[in-house]
């Protein structure tokens, strides 16, 4: 739900301000790749209506966000491709593919794709964090969006602890990826929490 909320916050922000300054389209592209790799099972496996609906919403809304930022004026006119230039193609995709291949529990296409998607998701925030560090001043809605985008993985960790004790659920790759992903946010969360505590604008060092 937090993940869904962060997407809705971002959509709302783009529609309201008609600007995507401070938003990394490259992060959304990473997520689009994550979703396409992971949700291939839409074609051969049914878990629940909720699960299927969320997958479809995540994929379609992420592609829509990319479309808005890259191609749909007036939002696309504000997209700064020089600032948002983190080369995830080299730095993230390659390593995620290699890690996906060597750490997959089983050498099947869906399993390798799933594993690579977990590793890629864990670092997908990097283009966004690096963009914000260049700009330093973070708009309120952008701060809420990034905070919810980080918080959802933290709540997964709580759920994993519950599932471990309640069902004996084990998911080593997911756990490790989740810890890396949440860890990358810790710094941002600190400055976000401070800005909320003091009621000031979020400014990164």
């Amino acid at each position: 739900m937090l993940h869904l909320m962060s997407i809705l916050l971002l959509l709302w922000k783009l529609k309201k301000s008609k600007s995507c300054v401070g938003i990394s389209c490259r992060m959304q592209e990473c997520y689009a790749i994550v979703f396409c790799l992971r949700y291939l099972d839409l074609f051969y496996q049914f878990i629940s209506v909720y699960n299927t609906a969320m997958k479809v919403v995540f994929i379609s809304s992420t592609f829509y966000l990319i479309f808005l930022m890259r191609f749909q004026p007036p939002v696309s006119a504000t997209y700064d491709r020089t600032a948002d230039s983190f080369p995830y193609e080299q730095y993230l995709l390659g390593p995620a593919a290699v890690l996906g291949f060597i750490s997959a529990e089983e050498w099947s296409i869906p399993e390798i794709f799933w594993t690579a998607s977990i590793w890629l998701e864990s670092v997908s925030i990097l283009p966004q964090l690096i963009l914000l560090q260049q700009l330093r001043e973070v708009e309120n809605l952008t701060a809420e969006f990034v905070a919810t985008m980080g918080a959802y993985r933290f709540f997964y960790i709580l759920n994993w602890i519950y599932r471990y004790f309640a069902e004996g659920y084990v998911n080593w790759i997911g756990w490790l990826g989740g810890i890396v992903q949440t860890g990358l946010y810790v710094d941002f969360f600190y400055y976000y929490a401070m800005s909320k505590w003091y009621g000031q604008k979020l400014v990164l060092p």
């Binding site: 878990i47 699960n51 969320m54 659920y169 084990v170």
Partner: peptide, 10 residues
Amino acid sequence: QDGQKGHDEL
């Protein structure tokens, strides 16, 4: 238990 089979999380 085999938590890896049929990933049920998003």
